[in-house]
Design a protein around this nucleic acid. Structure first.
Lengths: 152, 152
DNA sequence: GCCTGTGATGTATACTTATACATCGACAAT
DNA sequence: ATTGTCGATGTATAAGTATACATCACAGGC
């Protein structure tokens, strides 16, 4: 039972954003796993999880967030930002979105599909998405929207 | 003063083990830096520090602070520029670093790890690194530093 | 069958971290 | 000179996490 729970924790963390042990507890309960915060604290210690501004992550960045997308399932931008986004910053008419390793491509694809008028184009590295905007003001608009997605 | 403190935090974390904000506060006080836990909490959030079973670690450092560093410890940016960098040019708030084929990714990774405040994000192609800076002035600063690495 | 040791878990709480609110200083605009 | 804005910081406390203690189930030895 414990092993199954540890596996479930890894799956949840590699596909969604988790910012507290209570949040993880609720997500596990949706999967039929019901434990206390104290037990999760021990589990997370045993899994050597890291906690930072972007929430919890599995040790080693390679395995983190590099989930393959369904080819025929257009992702919602909000979900992509939730799952992969770490932080956003504006630089003149550009917006830089930092993601977990491997998360840049799905985020950029979702932005393209969102079709925002304020976005001229996007470029994805491994963990960085560059968003080009027509001017500084609209870059500020985009930055604010992305920031709000990160904060929700 | 704040910048100096942030640098001191990075130095302490890269050379000693820190397992709580109070412990860091005490270590900084020995260096003549006296702030409260609340300020350190904000500083550590701004530095994107990670906390795990092995204590606090800088972003991009070994995923688990409790693990000993192995042979492929993160290289210094200077070495990466020496090994792979060919030339650097500035374009408004962007800096373009041209590398040998295949050298863009290690250079971009090293820049991410360097954690320069002037760098909003980096994007790597095969032989080109695009560095986004907050404004034209700081792009100039970054260009100058990279140029000096190329010349040495 | 009984006893002992071990690992897992929950409860309660100690400990740690994040933040609401207030204050202050620097700076720009008037 | 005055006023307003902004970022930094401290205080107090809310929120989050780690763990002391107790309990239970189970396995192994005798």
């Amino acid at each position: 039972m414990k092993e199954q729970r540890l596996n479930a924790i890894r799956e949840v963390l590699s596909s969604t954003l988790v910012t507290s042990q209570d949040e993880l507890r609720r997500k596990l309960r949706r999967r039929g796993i019901d434990v206390t915060q104290a037990t999760l604290s021990r589990d997370m210690h045993e899994l050597r999880l890291m906690k930072g501004p972007g929430g919890y992550s599995l040790p080693g960045s390679v395995a983190n967030g590099a989930q393959e997308l369904d080819d025929d399932a257009p992702p919602v931008l909000n979900e992509m930002i939730d799952s992969f986004g770490l932080r956003v910053r504006q630089a003149m008419n550009q917006v830089v979105i930092v993601t977990v390793m491997g998360g840049a491509a799905p985020v950029a694809a979702a932005m393209d599909r969102a079709g925002w008028q304020e976005v001229v184009g996007t470029l994805a590295g491994d963990d960085t998405v560059l968003v080009i905007c027509p001017d500084v003001k609209r870059a500020g608009d985009v930055e604010e929207r992305i920031r709000k997605m990160l904060e929700s």
